[in-house]
């Protein structure tokens, strides 16, 4: 059969590519940029500010500072939304999704030096036992290592989106290592990567003015762990091979992508507006009816 011509997708007019916060970024612009180098400086500075606050992988961050001693710490203005979202996720997952997972990740070997040598793991403390966050101020009752790995990147994507908007840019796509926020008129076709074979996809999602985030245990994998560890069982969940979420903001999509490892989608749907696809260990797929995606089905 003569293969039909592939549909052409809207092409960006310019692209920024760089590495930051431990992953590869691509920002595509579907409108002309007036001063790209000026914009690039602003983006880099904003990422640096975020990283200096929330990264547990750098010694000079606020989070690393907090881990050293009990006390009261002032966060920047952007912290309120992030803490509030984590608190909601914490409740919706019965405490399984917690920013206090940092110490567990380090014990498992996922530390700033990537030692990747698991030691003895200990359950993290309960939120209310360990800390109080109120109006930008965090008071800790014991030494804690915060980890914003589950929703922090999504939040940073949203922050950069807001920065672009301030700059007058409305047609763009920010891709941070596969977590994507697209704003504007363009419709994008996002391949959903096969976790067993990164040269393949199991489906294609259509993204229009929203965010899609993916999560799978195939890349950040060491010993018996991957990037997500259950704070009660102290093991990485294995029943899910990969999953994707779409939502209006990247923070929402990113955070829910981790929450779905711990909590049934129906329950999370009660608290958050999102769509999902879950690719289970047995190669079966479950997705919400509202997800705009097609999947390649096994026929036999």
């Amino acid at each position: 059969m003569p293969s039909a011509p592939k549909p052409s997708l809207k092409q960006p007019l310019s692209t920024f590519s760089f590495e930051a916060i431990g992953t590869a970024w691509t920002i595509e612009f579907y409108e002309p940029l007036i001063d790209p180098s000026d914009l690039r400086v602003l983006i880099d500075a904003r990422i640096e500010q975020f990283d200096r606050t929330y990264s547990r992988f750098r010694a000079d961050s606020l989070v690393s500072h907090i881990a050293k001693s009990v006390g009261t710490y002032q966060f920047p203005d952007d912290a309120d939304l992030l803490f509030e979202f984590y608190k909601r996720l914490y409740h919706a997952t019965d405490g399984l999704m917690t920013p206090l997972i940092g110490s567990v990740m380090v014990e498992a070997g996922y530390d700033a030096a990537y030692s990747l040598q698991p030691g003895q793991l200990h359950q993290p403390p309960a939120w209310t036992e360990a800390m109080v966050f109120n109006n930008g101020t965090l008071t800790t009752n014991q030494p804690i290592l915060l980890d914003f790995g589950a929703a922090g990147k999504g939040y940073l994507i949203d922050i950069l989106g807001a920065l672009l908007k301030q700059y007058g840019i409305t047609q763009y796509c920010i891709d941070a290592g596969g977590d994507i926020l697209s704003r504007g008129n363009q419709k994008l076709h996002i391949g959903l990567e096969h976790p067993d074979n990164i040269g393949q996809v199991i489906g294609v999602a259509e993204l229009h003015n929203s965010s899609i985030c993916g999560s799978a245990g195939n890349r950040r994998t060491w010993a018996q762990f991957h990037h997500t560890i259950n704070p009660v069982t102290l093991q990485s969940p294995t029943h899910i091979k990969a999953l994707w979420t779409t939502a209006d903001s990247a923070m929402l999509a990113d955070g829910l992508a981790t929450a779905l490892y711990f909590t049934e989608p129906a329950r999370l749907k009660q608290s958050f507006a999102f769509e999902y696809a879950i690719f289970y260990e047995d190669y079966s797929l479950d997705h919400s009816p509202g997800l705009t995606a097609k999947f390649f089905e096994r026929t036999a």
């Binding site: 592939k6 549909p7 052409s8 997708l9 431990g22 992953t23 590869a24 691509t26 990147k153 796509c173 891709d175 941070a176 290592g177 596969g178 977590d179 994507i180 994008l188 076709h189 996002i190 391949g191 959903l192 990567e193 096969h194 976790p195 067993d196 074979n197 990164i198 040269g199 393949q200 996809v201 199991i202 489906g203 294609v204 999602a205 993204l207 899609i212 985030c213 993916g214 999560s215 799978a216 245990g217 195939n218 890349r219 950040r220 990037h227 990969a242 994707w244 690719f279 190669y283 079966s284 797929l285 479950d286 999947f295 390649f296 089905e297 096994r298």
Partner: peptide, 22 residues
């Protein structure tokens, strides 16, 4: 529903989403 992979080369895609690049 059981799904299978399809080669990237056979598709026209804007971007790919999976686990974060390391």
């Amino acid at each position: 529903q059981y799904v299978v992979g399809k080669e990237l080369a056979d598709l026209t895609l804007s971007r790919v989403s999976g686990s974060s690049l390391t």
